[in-house]
Amino acid sequence: MHGLINRALENVLRQRHGAAQWRRIAARAGLPFESFEPLSTYDVALTEAVIAAACRELERPRDSILEDVGTALISLPAGERLRRLLRFGGVTFHDFLYSLEDLPARARLALPDLVLPGLRLTDLEDGEFRLKTDVPFAGAGCILMGLLRAMADDYGALVLLDMTTTEDCTAGGCPAGVCATGVCATGGCTEEITILLLDAAHAEGRPFDLAAGVAGGGR
């Protein structure tokens, strides 16, 4: 698993629950270091260990923690960079949803070794979409759901999000072994989110200035 993803997970846990709590989670997960290095690559088992440790330390279900992580990735001050990079995907939330299929390619443009799970969007019309993703670990779809929620706020769109598949997929070769919210496709675990776009211009949304994020433009 790319260090960037592990570090994002760490940052969110650290900022939401404090440095002491993060150290306890890291210790429980048996991390041989204090902090993930964003430009390194780690065994996916370490990611899994951190998530499992966070569930026990925080005494919260896995899905809820992961969804929180997805939201915090965007909404915490440190998420400004990611928020901006995602906002390049489209002028409206609708455009943004369509840009999600390009997300892995966009990520590779920035970091050639950053492999994001494939995303497939189906437009069911009348504001209903289905987003499928092949998750690298169980519950990764929940991160995506939290992220979508935060981005909808960012665009000022009113959406209803739902994990549509809740079958157990222990037998299907899911990488993590347990998967509360995924359904296994051949070769891995697929998670699916239903998106109901109720109002694309429900609120003002946050401003997005194209050139604000590079040197010389104020941030």
Binding site: E37, R81, G213
Partner: peptide, 20 residues
């Protein structure tokens, strides 16, 4: 817009490398 995205992503990656 893709070029602006790339410039910004490059800045982010470069900053990370400088920090490292």
């Amino acid at each position: 817009v893709e070029m602006l995205y790339l410039v910004e992503a490059k800045h982010a990656v470069l900053e990370e490398f400088q920090r490292l």
